[in-house]
Amino acid sequence: MTPGDPDLLFRTLADPTRRAIFERLCRDGEQTVGALTARAGVSQPAVSKHLGVLKLAGLVRDRPEGRQTHYSAQLAALAPLTDWTRQMTGFWEARFDGLEDLLTRMDQ
């Protein structure tokens, strides 16, 4: 699998801790591993592992600075999920419109 693959993105974000780390980076901007660990509720090695998975999926980017590494969310990486959601929305809206038409005809 490669970054941008919807299956990889869904699997990566399925983990609640990974999703929380990604959401925090989206909300609060660039963070170090230490800052993320302080509020993650898991150990630093666990946060680092989650960040590695997020990076492989293209959801975060790292920027080394001295002895620390800063991580930032890559919102553009969510585009395949946005596209999929848009397709599913169209699909279900069409289904509900068809059901509404059927119910209207049945009432007449």
Rank of each mutant, 00 (worst) to 15 (best):
A77F: 06
V60I: 00
G90I: 04
G90Q: 02
S72Q: 09
A35F: 00
Q108G: 14
R63N: 12
T2M: 05
D28C: 13
L36H: 07
V47F: 03
D97N: 04
L103M: 12
A14I: 02
G90N: 00
P3K: 04
V42E: 02
P3A: 11
R86Y: 09
G34L: 08
R19P: 11
C26I: 11
Q31W: 04
A14V: 05
A57H: 03
R18L: 03
A35P: 03
F91V: 09
E93M: 15
V42R: 01
L54P: 07
D107S: 08
E93H: 10
Y71F: 03
L75F: 02
E23A: 15
D83P: 03
E93Q: 14
F91Q: 13
V33P: 03
R24M: 13
D97Y: 05
R95G: 08
R86A: 12
L103N: 11
L13N: 01
L59D: 05
L99I: 12
P45Y: 04
L8R: 04
A40Y: 07
A57F: 03
P16M: 03
F22P: 07
A14S: 10
P3Y: 05
A38K: 13
Q31R: 14
L59G: 03
L54E: 11
T82L: 15
A40E: 13
L36I: 05
R24C: 15
L25S: 01
T32N: 10
T12C: 08
G90K: 01
L81D: 07
R67Y: 09
D28R: 06
L54N: 09
T85D: 15
